[in-house]
Simulated assay, not measured.
Amino acid sequence: MKRRFTNALLLAVAVVMASCGDDDEGPSSYYTLDGSKKTLASGIFFYDDSPGESKSGKTIYYHQVTLVSAGINVNGTSSSGTGDLVTLMLASETTQLEIGSHSFVGDDTEAEPQDFVYGDIAVGFNASTGNATSEYDFESGTVTVAKSGDIYTIDFEGEVVVENQTQKHTVSGHYSGTLTSILND
């Protein structure tokens, strides 16, 4: 009896140790703001089906990717809870999110396809009130989008500032997963 208990205990410890291995590597989807890493739980793609015109006269669509941290529950177009949001506005020549690298321009009147038009981070965002503890606006950066099947991989980096301040903060992130698509009205 003692031997079976010891074997069962060793098996349980082995299972726990094996499952803890991935945790040491950190979350697979995250963002880091000034060295503080936070997990991203889901992503939403708000797409536009009405084209505009870029500065050079090309057809352009503006698409918003919002990456959501744990704590915020998204159900269709409604959400609840409190957490963080990373919002990235990207320009595209099609109604689809363009694969490739998007460089920051910060102004939609200057945007061309595959530009990173603007972005922000809402820390401590309360879905019920629409308010955040802190809001950061991108001042520079790049967003790289890849896709395999239904899985998007989105990597971003840049500098952000708190609204109405000048001190720059570094941000980077990685998201790998599906994006819930919602038509922008």
Results as ranks from 00 to 15, higher is better:
residue 34 D to E: 01
residue 35 G to H: 07
residue 35 G to L: 06
residue 35 G to K: 06
residue 37 K to D: 14
residue 38 K to Q: 08
residue 38 K to I: 01
residue 40 L to W: 11
residue 41 A to G: 04
residue 42 S to W: 03
residue 42 S to K: 04
residue 44 I to P: 03
residue 44 I to A: 04
residue 45 F to T: 13
residue 47 Y to G: 05
residue 47 Y to T: 04
residue 47 Y to R: 10
residue 48 D to I: 12
residue 49 D to Q: 11
residue 50 S to I: 10
residue 52 G to N: 11
residue 52 G to L: 11
residue 53 E to V: 13
residue 53 E to T: 15
residue 53 E to G: 13
residue 54 S to D: 14
residue 54 S to M: 12
residue 55 K to P: 11
residue 55 K to L: 15
residue 55 K to T: 11
residue 59 T to E: 15
residue 60 I to R: 07
residue 62 Y to N: 12
residue 65 V to I: 15
residue 65 V to C: 13
residue 66 T to C: 09
residue 67 L to N: 01
residue 68 V to W: 03
residue 70 A to R: 12
residue 71 G to Q: 07
residue 71 G to V: 09
residue 73 N to R: 13
residue 74 V to Q: 09
residue 75 N to W: 07
residue 76 G to H: 08
residue 77 T to F: 12
residue 77 T to G: 12
residue 78 S to W: 08
residue 78 S to Y: 03
residue 78 S to V: 07
residue 84 D to C: 14
residue 89 M to V: 12
residue 89 M to W: 12
residue 90 L to M: 06
residue 91 A to E: 07
residue 92 S to I: 11
residue 92 S to E: 10
residue 93 E to W: 06
residue 93 E to N: 11
residue 96 Q to D: 13
residue 98 E to D: 14
residue 100 G to Q: 03
residue 104 F to Y: 15
residue 104 F to Q: 15
residue 104 F to S: 13
residue 104 F to V: 03
residue 104 F to D: 10
residue 107 D to H: 10
residue 108 D to L: 14
residue 108 D to F: 12
residue 110 E to M: 12
residue 111 A to G: 09
residue 112 E to V: 08
residue 112 E to H: 11
residue 113 P to G: 02
residue 113 P to C: 01
residue 115 D to V: 05
residue 115 D to G: 08
residue 116 F to I: 03
residue 117 V to S: 10
residue 118 Y to G: 10
residue 120 D to C: 15
residue 120 D to P: 04
residue 121 I to M: 05
residue 122 A to P: 07
residue 126 N to D: 09
residue 126 N to F: 05
residue 126 N to K: 09
residue 126 N to I: 05
residue 129 T to N: 00
residue 129 T to P: 04
residue 129 T to Y: 04
residue 130 G to N: 13
residue 131 N to P: 02
residue 132 A to N: 09
residue 133 T to A: 03
residue 133 T to S: 05
residue 135 E to R: 14
residue 135 E to V: 09
residue 136 Y to D: 02
residue 137 D to N: 12
residue 137 D to P: 06
residue 141 G to F: 05
residue 143 V to P: 06
residue 143 V to R: 01
residue 144 T to Y: 02
residue 144 T to F: 00
residue 145 V to D: 02
residue 145 V to K: 05
residue 146 A to Y: 07
residue 146 A to G: 11
residue 147 K to I: 08
residue 147 K to P: 03
residue 149 G to S: 02
residue 149 G to Q: 00
residue 149 G to C: 01
residue 150 D to K: 08
residue 151 I to D: 04
residue 152 Y to V: 01
residue 154 I to P: 04
residue 155 D to H: 04
residue 156 F to Q: 00
residue 156 F to N: 06
residue 157 E to P: 00
residue 157 E to R: 01
residue 159 E to D: 06
residue 159 E to P: 00
residue 161 V to K: 12
residue 162 V to M: 04
residue 162 V to L: 13
